[in-house]
């Protein structure tokens, strides 16, 4: 007899050790997320995947599935919270989509589309953040970093390096590079590293590739993030 949980009224099976996010993905149910990627240890920081488990808010990417859970994933309340979180990410950084190479391929933008977000609601910080273009093949635009730590985890868990870390707290939080100068060129990041390709926004970009695919023909120009994500992260857990 399979163990099951209920998500939005639908009974779905799970195996011991799976998180709610993993069970949902296998069953073809999309739970919005930005800091989660099934390739790496869950981080639980972006809070977009917050679902109601038996009436309590939990992060689906870190919360273990267990028998008897009645889970709400889609509700006006949860989606409004998700929209507010996304808007806060937009105003905290400097996200100018028309001038960003990643536009159309950006998960942050696609999540915003998914949530029906058309404005940023909050006052903008317009913080001054740096660009590190020192590396011959890869650049970091800190204006677009949302501190999801996907690059940190990719570097440690897949590349067996330790190129990135998050330093500081709260508004002082920054992505830092593990090199004496703090510059990317002096780190051991290689253009073929997983960490160089994992950024969900336009914060880490591969140089000289930005406009190979024209705007209008990019991933999320016509496809919704739920379909794209389930195709990439669903059943097989392959990337």
């Amino acid at each position: 007899m399979n163990k099951t949980i209920v998500i939005d009224g639908k009974v779905i099976p799970f195996q011991d050790g799976q998180t709610i996010m993993e069970a949902a993905a296998e069953a073809g149910i999309y739970i919005a997320h930005l800091c989660h990627n099934p390739q790496f240890t869950p981080h639980g920081s972006c809070k977009l995947c917050t679902v109601k488990v038996n009436g309590r808010n939990c992060s689906a990417c870190t919360f273990p599935a267990s028998e008897g859970q009645n889970i709400t994933n889609i509700s006006k309340e949860l989606n409004d919270d998700r929209e507010k979180i996304t808007q806060m990410l937009f105003v905290e950084g400097n996200h100018f989509c028309p001038s960003c190479e990643k536009t159309g391929n950006c998960n942050l933008q696609a999540v915003a589309y998914h949530l029906g977000m058309t404005d940023n609601h909050f006052p903008h910080f317009f913080e001054n953040r740096e660009v590190d273009a020192s590396h011959p093949d890869v650049m970091i635009d800190h204006n677009r970093c949302i501190f999801c730590t996907l690059c940190v985890r990719a570097s440690q868990e897949v590349d067996s390096k330790n190129v990135f870390a998050i330093s500081g707290r709260g508004l002082e939080k920054r992505l830092v590079v593990n090199s004496e100068s703090g510059l990317l060129k002096d780190s051991d990041l290689d253009v073929n590293d997983c960490a160089a390709h994992i950024c969900p926004t336009g914060a880490i970009l591969i140089k000289r590739t930005g406009y190979k695919v024209p705007i209008g023909q990019r991933i999320f120009d016509h496809a919704h993030i739920d379909t794209v994500t389930l195709a990439n992260e669903g059943a097989s857990h392959d990337e």
Binding site: F90, F96, P98, S99, T118, D119, N120, H124, F126, N128
Partner: peptide
């Protein structure tokens, strides 16, 4: 609010730094 600049300041707001 019509367009990126009305919504988030857009290209002119890049002088904010």
């Amino acid at each position: 609010a019509v367009g990126a600049c009305a919504i988030n300041g857009g290209l002119p707001a890049m002088r904010n730094h």
